[in-house]
Simulated scan of single mutants.
Amino acid sequence: MQAKPPPSKADADPAAHSQGGSHGRNTQKFIDHSNPGERRPIRRRHVLKDRRYRRDDEITLDTSMFLKESPYFEIPVQNVTARVGRTAKLTCVVENLGHFKVAWGYKVTGAVLTVATQVITKNTRISVQREQQSTWVLTISNVTMKDQGDYWCQVNTSPPRSISGYLSVVEPPVMEGGNEEVTITSGEVANLTCRARGTPTPTIRWIREDYDRIRINATYFASDYIGSSLLLRTVNHRSAAGYLCIASNGHPPSISRRVIVHVK
């Protein structure tokens, strides 16, 4: 009768067939690539506190590459435009965050503004809200021109993952000065001025209050004129009228100033 071969080690230890062993221990194996000539299995020994790295004897590996799911940005941070004095909100959506944290920062200065739901900056106009588990909203109230720039949303993976959005701050036109009434002798030059500020820089447009054409000089008439200064050369009694300077920059409301010209 043919003799039976001796039982294999696997047959002798049924727990070797199970992934967890008799005590539910993790026997997942990784390959050591530090020695190309030798491919020996490495058993997971222990995981560091931050769970990103594991250490086996003299070898340290970043285990994030083995994870089926790791943090990722669901959508880009949308650029935002806000008016001076209003509130701006930038939204960052991070899925599979796990034990990691989300931070907001201001790229212009490099300052960290918030970490998780905690506000780090001393700027009292900054706040952060977590919505629906995966959405982080940075809120800037009473926006000023100094708030304009890139804001980054970052996850503290190794290396960190970040994405940014831009806050544009606009300011509707504001009148800063100019004359309101001009008295000029016939045949002389009248200089009408109008100044306005805003972001973007406002455009100044002149029209006559009665919608008649503007007499720029003796031979040139125009329905309107663009520029902060309107020169009326060799004025005559027809030049006497009310003129409107209108400042606009694409962000309502436009504003106007009335200048009255008297001709002696």
Rank of each mutant, 00 (worst) to 15 (best):
R83S: 15
V108Q: 10
N217E: 02
G178S: 04
L232S: 04
W152G: 04
H17R: 13
S248N: 14
Q118G: 00
L167R: 06
Y106T: 00
L244W: 10
G24T: 00
M175P: 01
T193K: 12
T91D: 07
P41G: 07
F100Y: 15
A111Q: 12
R125H: 14
L48D: 12
V77L: 05
E176C: 00
R51E: 12
A82L: 04
P202W: 00
I42P: 00
H17P: 00
Q19R: 14
Q148D: 03
L61R: 11
G24W: 01
D50A: 10
Y106F: 15
Y225D: 01
N26W: 01
S186K: 12
V182W: 02
A15F: 11
T193I: 11
T117P: 00
L138Y: 03
A12V: 13
I126V: 15
R213A: 12
P5E: 11
N156F: 02
S228R: 09
G98E: 09
V263D: 10
H262K: 15
R125N: 15
L232T: 09
L97H: 10
K68A: 13
S223P: 06
P7C: 01
A15N: 15
I75F: 06
L61A: 11
V112T: 15
V77C: 06
A82Y: 06
F73V: 02
D11E: 15
E69M: 05
P160A: 06
R86A: 15
Y166S: 04
T193W: 03
V235S: 03
Q28G: 09
R208H: 07
E131H: 07
V143D: 04
T139G: 10
T135R: 14
K68T: 10
A218F: 05
G24H: 03
M145C: 00
V143H: 08
